[in-house]
Design a protein around this nucleic acid. Sequence first.
DNA 1: CCTTCAGTTTGGTCCTACCATTCTACTTTT
DNA 2: AAAAGTAGAATGGTAGGACCAAACTGAAGG
Lengths: 293, 293
Amino acid sequence: MARIVSFAYMSLQLRTIRVDMSPSQLPAKSKTEAAPIAQFQRIRSSRAFDEIAAQIRTELSSGRLAVGNRLPSERALSEQFGVSRNTLREALRSLEHAGLIRLQKGARGGAFISQHSDEAIATGLMDMYHVGTIQPAQLTEARIWLESVVVREACRRATAADIDMLNRNIDEAQEARRRGDFAGRAERHIEFHRMLARLTDNPIMVIVMNGVLDVLTHFVQRIGEYDNSFVLPSRRRFMEHFAAGEADAAVAEMEACLKRLQRSYMSRIQAAEGVSATKAAPRGRRSPPAAQR
Amino acid sequence: MARIVSFAYMSLQLRTIRVDMSPSQLPAKSKTEAAPIAQFQRIRSSRAFDEIAAQIRTELSSGRLAVGNRLPSERALSEQFGVSRNTLREALRSLEHAGLIRLQKGARGGAFISQHSDEAIATGLMDMYHVGTIQPAQLTEARIWLESVVVREACRRATAADIDMLNRNIDEAQEARRRGDFAGRAERHIEFHRMLARLTDNPIMVIVMNGVLDVLTHFVQRIGEYDNSFVLPSRRRFMEHFAAGEADAAVAEMEACLKRLQRSYMSRIQAAEGVSATKAAPRGRRSPPAAQR
DNA sequence: CCTTCAGTTTGGTCCTACCATTCTACTTTT
DNA sequence: AAAAGTAGAATGGTAGGACCAAACTGAAGG
């Protein structure tokens, strides 16, 4: 009676992957159609699972697969595509890593089209930081730039309820600080920035800021605790301007606070790290390697 | 003699993955140590390949694995980790998708630590657009915001050579337009923005802008050609301010141009698409689903 | 009605085998 | 002796089978 079928089952029409590389088959078709084709489609990968992932992506962007839909089981899919279950799983792994699908075990399990490919971007940034493509200084720098945009836009859009929410966050941070809960305080501070990003109502800003803040959190944890007694008063001043709709003043206050934090970080990392801080630092002034395009 | 060993071979000390789920083994250790541990480490995944990927990531961030290093072969790795080659491949697939490693066939092939995890973020944004998490309006909106930051910073840092490069790009675009090469002109225009992003010398801005521009290119291709005769004159005016170091004026010029383009896009998408444009549009005003955090 | 337990579906893992590609080293030819 | 060709080995990519644990289904039993 009250059974809710929350996920529709999608019966897909998928092209069978044919990768058979036996060279005897390809030229056997026709010898007369060697016409000069203007533009060849670059063959990339030649790997079956790449093509499978691409096909599912196509289905998804075309709207034939929507969020919440359930793909057929691995066994069924592998049969549809004409590949082994092994190969199919590698394709699913790729899609899962991208955050497009969510794998669920059990009888009614399977691969479900998922909403948030949020995590992929965050881990991407995190990886770049770990590899050394993103230096700490560049991280805090970009954070300040982005934050100014976020604050300006959030200030334009914030409702009274939003301002209450932000003030409540500051209260909680203060409370956490009072009882010596440094981890809780740091968490509130980060959450404050995430809230601001959400107020822009723009998923790109939300995602990017989330990713940057993730990396920043990791970075801060690495260099240890720091003096930040100036943050809470700054927050209060910030909220005064913010609530009054004075975007420029709010941005200035936030920027001053962040720049002071940045100086704190930088001096700390130079002191504490020594050698390891310059791990992958030396690189050409312009056009970092990650930017060839 | 002159044999260059371009890739060092890393002999890794990797912890063996033990996933054996036989429950008889776990409690057999000790019955007295059921002490109340303060903070449990959240067990996530319980999937072997996730742990493998995490371990390799750890090796990478610790510096024991550097860019260009070659991981052992799949067969060797699977033995080191104590998992099947199948499982190991799924882990490698995940890392490859993240852009951390590059797989190469052949005798001296293997998994090489790669530099740019640039692509992962771009495809992540693209996926979000395809799924409908990012709406066209939000895309152009974020683009304008980001561009203002980029222009301001690029203006601060640009050298004479950089300005020459930008001017050359405009010349090429004009030349392409004159001979009716609309694709070439569009490409130059996009490249102009990528150049500006690179001038910030901040990989985060470069990556994010690249991703946004990728999605935007895809979006523009979908809605077809558009009137943009105003772009080139705007570029010239922009460069005047830019070369003079007048950041505010340059930002204003660029913003005006982009906003005009945005209006053109929006009117076009409403006219041409009709139904399909509102595919996944209705959603709560605030806090989009991708932003739960 | 609720609980319990067997059965089914499905993802996660393992194993073995084979193929195509790429490089190395040896052999053959010029 | 130099060049060309060839066999072999190493390595990623694919196949197809098998089993396990988790999660759901539904019937049996309280």
